[in-house]
């Protein structure tokens, strides 16, 4: 079964009297374990589409199903529960909680899911090791480099073993070396754990990692290559 199944969604933004059609009827299925890149020019609707998949926003029309469950009918709390249980997020800015250490940031989803302390501890250490940050566990975000922060974000996205990870331009604020390091880690985790990745990007170096490339233009999918 597909992890993501999108049927004919549109999203219209209305600012004052101006309407923007960010998505104009998108159909997309993403299978389990895929490593998919969403590409397209600025303003083509990549972020909007990721927000639909991630239950952060709702389509104007059409439906989104995650793991076979229609999420367009869910209320706020149900969507929050959905995100907590099955979706991990990585953002362009290094979206960590500034008052918490790397360790605590990674632990956050586990706390929200009510895992017992011992299990949390093991899982956090395992993840920090996977992103090669064991020695930075007790640093707060402002004591970490951009690349390190983004790796903490990757670890956090994976913490509660989601089936789907959504990344919006994860390397846009990183230099080449750090960008590659983050992509290498994501790819490795995809191969080792089979978690599905969908990421939006402009960066040709990043696109080369993908095993499927979906191209958006002006709110429509114009190309889909595996």
């Amino acid at each position: 079964m597909e992890v993501v199944k999108i049927e004919n969604i549109t999203r219209v933004y209305q600012v004052g009297k101006v309407e923007t059609q960010a998505l104009r009827g998108v159909n997309l299925s993403i299978g389990n374990g895929e490593f998919t890149a969403l590409v397209g020019p600025s303003g083509s609707g990549k972020t909007t589409l990721l927000q639909m998949i991630g239950c952060l926003d709702q389509p104007t029309t059409g439906s989104v199903a995650i793991n076979g469950k229609d999420v367009t009918k869910l209320n706020r709390n149900q969507r929050a529960d959905m995100r907590r249980g099955t979706i991990g997020f990585i953002f362009q800015f290094f979206a960590l909680i500034p008052t918490l250490t790397a360790y605590e940031n990674v632990e956050m989803p586990l706390l929200l899911n009510g895992h017992p302390p011992k299990e949390r501890r093991e899982r956090v250490m395992e993840l920090l090791k996977a992103v090669d940050l064991t020695d930075r566990a007790n640093n707060r975000p402002d004591q970490l480099s951009g690349g390190q922060q983004q790796r903490v974000a990757v670890a956090r996205a994976l913490a509660s073993k989601p089936t789907l990870i959504l990344a919006d331009e994860p390397t846009a604020n990183l230099d080449t070396t750090n960008g590659h390091q983050v992509m290498d880690i994501m790819k490795k985790l995809n191969q080792e754990t089979g978690v599905t990745f969908v990421f939006a990007t402009h960066d040709p170096r990043v696109i080369s990692y993908a095993d499927r490339v979906v191209t958006l233009e002006d709110g429509l999918i114009v190309k889909d290559t595996k």
Binding site: G54, R76, N77, A80, A95, I97, L112
Partner: peptide, 16 residues
Amino acid sequence: TREIGILSAIGMRGGR
């Protein structure tokens, strides 16, 4: 604002 967005994105409910 952004921090609240992050917490919400990783699944923290409004009540919390």
